[in-house]
Design a protein around this nucleic acid. Structure first.
Lengths: 229, 229
DNA sequence: TCATGAAAGTGTAAATATCACACGAAGTAA
DNA sequence: TTACTTCGTGTGATATTTACACTTTCATGA
């Protein structure tokens, strides 16, 4: 370092792209901003990082405060640091993405008076700041990740059918998958434990329920196991 | 947001994990720290982010100032935000990784009076802060990335032989690869342009030189092309 | 000039993985 | 009992991956 500067400081935020699956569609959770800048505009849940919390903690805190979400899958995505992201001043944002099970059960009433809503990808509103860009980055990451790591289960309830799982993959990846080949492959990894029957959708043949086995997954991972769909 | 806080600010740094290949080994560039904390200790090149530069700009500036490196492949890795990373105060660090061509030509003399050196992975010194952890994260990322994106070329001189390329992959991935299968696969992507002969290592048959074609790569990428080694 | 040493360069057959594809079974409701 | 809808299953054709060994080319030095 040729010269010595006083340590500069930057305002630091976290922003979370929250994915959920509702029937046959991939959805994103957005919050309506109450204050300027971009008051009244939809935005990713997020906020300033406090000095006494880690980035992960900040992301989880904001998810709970703004969206009433706890215990979700959460992973750091990317850090956005353009100079003019925020009109107020220079703000650096560490973006995360989260995967939420059971979108239908997550009542937005759980959030304290904040206006939160799930949006389909095809029906996104204009977003505050550079959040459209962050969202696009997260989607790209999710599509990549889901094909080589078994994280799809994080978007489903703990007990699910193979049809649900396939529908989820089709929603995320945006193309159809052959039913027989999909089942052969997924079951071949031996990560799903069959449970008892289920009679979803009343009038049809009931489908076998499965749950994901995280213990088996950890064991296989240590042996250099490769997942791919 | 239930309450209103004054925006907290955090000291922000960038740190760069610089990879290079020297003969048959993957190496890392480290800087000897001149000042406290960790004075005299080896560390990743990096430093504070100024308020009027983006994160990428800060990383490139530090690489040039501390290591005399310009025009390298650079990509954001991860942002580290534990509370006690830095003994002085809470410092959040955005880590990058860089890939450098021609390690042998990069004289550390180019760096202005800083003590910079290449270290083999098997011969790493104790590092300042949490830099050992950052380095491990970068290595994991490089190993993953190199198998599904053609970034290996960034670690070789502009003209290289297939044996060099294979040796590089073996160094990064840590296992041997079959020569015929490797060549078949790499040439199959049609990203390498053959040049003229070369007579490295005196007394043997000269090897064909190639260069990577970034234009072809961009074209293929747009058509949803998949690379894998 | 010829013999030697060392890396470069090349093809094929077996094994494995992927893909395309259609119908009987199981349940509910009318 | 019939109609309807979703669940669940296997095979053969094709493409990809893997394992494997010898000849070529050059420089050197006897």
């Amino acid at each position: 370092m040729p010269f010595q500067y006083e340590y500069p400081r930057a305002a630091l935020t976290v922003d979370c792209v929250v994915f959920g699956v509702d029937e046959h569609e991939l959805k994103i959770l957005l919050i309506k901003r109450g204050i300027e800048p971009f008051a009244g505009c939809w935005a990713l849940p997020g906020g300033f990082v406090r000095v006494d919390e880690t980035l992960d903690e900040a992301a989880r805190r904001e998810l709970e405060e703004e969206a009433g979400l706890k215990d979700v899958f959460l992973e750091q995505l990317y850090t956005f640091g353009s100079l003019k992201r925020d009109p107020r001043e220079r703000v650096v944002s560490v973006a995360y993405y989260a995967l939420v099970k059971r979108v239908e059960h997550h009542t937005t009433a759980a959030t304290d008076a904040t206006d939160a809503r799930w949006f389909a990808l095809s029906d996104l509103p204009r977003l505050a700041f550079d959040h459209t860009y962050i969202l696009a980055t997260a989607l790209e990451r999710l599509r990549g990740k889901i094909t080589y790591q078994p994280i799809g289960f994080e978007l489903l309830p703990p007990k699910f059918t193979l049809t649900q799982l396939q529908t989820l993959y089709e929603a995320v990846l945006g193309h159809e998958i052959d039913k027989r080949n999909f089942r052969k492959k997924v079951l071949g990894y031996d990560l799903l434990i069959p449970l008892k029957e289920k009679r979803r959708e009343g009038a049809h043949r009931p489908a076998q329920l499965f749950r994901f086995d995280p213990v088996k997954y950890e064991r296989l991972k240590k042996k250099g196991f490769l997942f791919e769909i």
